[in-house]
């Protein structure tokens, strides 16, 4: 269960204080597939970075599995990101000089998993997301956008996170590929009971998630 209460994030831009997220409260049951929609600059990515412990809120609490991550220290936040969160980015953000397999193994090495176990799990995950064994040894530059995003999803699943945060995962893909990636995320959500929060401005995607929220000028309203 994810429970967000009165979450606020303000930035100082010169003499002006900008509120990217304003008193946002919502809760997501475990294993649900949730979308957050909104226009550019509405605060979607800021909200996602707060949920993923990439940034600290100015006010409010984020309760995940009974722990308030807003109150965690730096070291605990690193642990939280490593063990509980998986990220999928719009531009994939794979490490360019590592192969697909090595990219998936990387978060597991941060978690101290032995190399044999890392290799087995990474291979299994890449098979699961549809990256064939010949492509597993390729570097990201030699893979298509859809394939790179599949590798990114496999990397996000590597440490069996409780929550996957996806920021515009289909934003850089054509409609057909985007649909396949969305289906993949949906399937993983159902099969692995992983909570997935997707930020998107694609209403057709939002319409297919379990729940949908709209973020407007930093304020959240339930859309579905």
């Amino acid at each position: 269960m994810i429970e967000v209460r009165d979450l606020t994030k303000t930035f100082q831009s010169g003499d002006t204080t900008v509120s990217a997220v304003r008193n946002v409260s919502f809760s997501v049951p475990e294993g649900k597939f949730v979308s957050i929609i909104g226009k550019s600059g509405s605060g979607k990515s800021t909200l996602l970075s707060l949920l993923g412990a990439l940034d600290r809120p100015s006010k409010g609490s984020i309760n995940i599995a009974g722990h308030d991550i807003a109150a965690l220290g730096d070291r605990s936040l690193v642990d939280y990101r490593r063990k509980k969160i998986g990220f999928v980015f719009q531009s994939y953000n794979l490490i360019p000089n590592l192969t697909a397999l090595e990219n998936v193994m990387l978060p597991m090495s941060f978690n101290g998993l032995p190399s044999g176990s890392r290799l087995r799990r990474a291979t299994e995950l890449l098979d699961q997301v549809g990256i064939t064994s010949d492509k597993q040894q390729r570097k990201p530059g030699k893979l298509s956008g859809g394939e790179q995003q599949r590798v990114a999803i496999a990397r996000a699943l590597a440490n069996r996170p409780a929550l996957i945060l996806a920021d515009e995962p289909t934003g850089n893909l054509d409609t057909e590929t985007g649909k396949k990636i969305f289906d993949l995320l949906h399937k993983l959500s159902r099969e692995q009971k992983t909570t997935i929060i997707v930020v998107t401005h694609d209403l057709s995607i939002a319409g297919r998630t379990d729940e949908s929220f709209r973020l407007q000028d930093g304020k959240l309203v339930k859309a579905k």
Partner: peptide, 16 residues
């Protein structure tokens, strides 16, 4: 810089 951000986002510590 961005790659460092990615490494930290996927669980790498500063020291690592």
């Amino acid at each position: 810089r961005r790659e460092i951000g990615i490494l930290k986002a996927i669980g790498a510590s500063n020291s690592r």
